[in-house]
Design a protein around this nucleic acid. Structure first.
Lengths: 245, 245
DNA sequence: ACAAAAGTGTTTCAGATACACCCATGT
DNA sequence: ACATGGGTGTATCTGAAACACTTTTGT
């Protein structure tokens, strides 16, 4: 009768979790929020913050809740987007746990806060993790790499770079975000032109910031645009994956 | 003792499913594979093919298995990538079901095959769905829209367009894929130059195809490259999301 | 006066676009 | 011969990149 055989089979229930890749730029370096695990497995090792989905809760709500619990900051002021699901059956020794990773981006936050869950959290530069000098629990290194690649890509095509900045910010602040996340130096004058030419990227507020040294810089707020057209390319002539012929 | 409170709470088990957005180009139009639902809810209505994850199975494996069951074609020859998770608590009247959507792309396949699950499946042009002339079950219209946007984006940045073509193919075949998915006409001469200039996109096989009318066209296989550098842009000067100032 | 960073102007060059034109085939 | 689509050549224009140069502050 029914042709949809796949619907008849009783669904296997699995535990579903959310893990967060929370990025910020501190001291000119890209950093990620990690917690030190208090329980087995991977006790004492660094891991991405996360937790299980609750009944009646969307994954976005889980991510926002965990973000608040881990950082003490409401997610309203942060950029939050879904990365993807990780489902290797043996990715967690405790059993079958599928996790949906989220990418969160915010300005250099006042962290951690004692007396909250966030007290186990700490900002860690991303480079030593990529270089395997710091090991992460579970498959969190892979998730981190995917999150970094997403963040780098989003800098090209969207205005999320402003989510890294505390308002108001200068064009140089914004440029340093790109330099930290992409890991390449950018020409200040050309960068400035590209940002100002893109309508809706930033909005001048008519004030200036006095630096310790040098000429005062104009201050800006985020604009309303979310998509960069045209994209702000990282290294115009990159390499292709493979050759042939 | 433990600071990771979120790990202590017993995980709520939920049913996890995979839904597939399977695209192809037939008759110069983008089409999607839909099944007619045999059971409630949404009995008799069109829906994306999909099914529940089984024990010990990755989501990719679930997607490949469903693809094989629904289309009778092994997923080896198809492009398959994860889209994202959909988790609204009331998205399925039967209960809490989180679904992870996948995007699949293949050439115009011999479908459907009688005597298999695929007999309930049929190719449907995408346009009338977007125009709300055909309603899909559950939140599948949203999933379809997201899949389409991903496919359009991937055409810009990767070589998946070749996954729509049966080998060998001509440059014009490839161009018609872009025109069908993006919904815009492209200049044949400039398109040809861009494709041939991108090393690893296509590989000439030195033969020609005789069309019903006109000059024979050179035939190609897929190249080894997967990333297009530089991207093949759709409409150089698009519009931004909002204005201001 | 000098250092340092912000901001402007200008030259150069690569690539996209538009379109004229030639080529190879069937009828 | 002509229609049709494949394929090439080329003039023009836009925008990115590089970098010289000017401006505005603190010391």
């Amino acid at each position: 009768m029914s042709k949809t055989v796949h619907q008849r089979r009783p669904p296997a229930s699995v535990a579903v979790a959310v893990d967060l890749v929370i990025f910020t730029v501190r001291d000119g370096r890209l950093q990620v929020l990690l917690i030190e695990r208090g329980n087995t497995p991977y006790r004492g090792q660094a891991a991405l913050p996360g937790g299980f989905v609750r009944d009646g809760e969307t994954l976005d709500a889980t991510a926002r809740r965990e973000l608040r619990e881990e950082t003490g900051v409401s997610a309203d002021s942060l950029h939050l987007e879904q990365l993807r699901a990780y489902s290797e059956p043996d990715r967690d020794p405790r059993g079958r746990i599928i996790t949906i990773a989220y990418l969160a981006i915010g300005p250099d936050l006042p962290m951690p806060q004692a007396g909250t869950d966030a007290s186990a959290a700490h900002w860690t530069p991303v480079s030593p993790i990529l270089d395997r000098q710091i090991a992460l629990a579970f498959d969190h290194e892979e998730i981190l790499r995917d999150g970094l690649e997403r963040a780098r890509s989003q800098l090209e095509h969207t205005t999320i770079a402003t989510a890294f900045c505390r308002e108001p910010f200068t064009i140089a602040d914004l440029r340093q975000i790109y330099e930290a996340v992409w890991g390449v130096p950018l020409d200040p004058s050309n960068f400035r032109r590209k940002v100002l030419k893109t309508k809706g990227f930033v909005k001048p507020i008519g004030e200036r910031r006095l630096p310790d040294i040098g000429r005062p810089a104009a201050l800006f707020h985020r604009g309303l645009a979310e998509i960069l057209t045209p994209p702000l390319m990282r290294s115009g002539t990159a390499s292709i994956s493979r050759e042939e012929m």
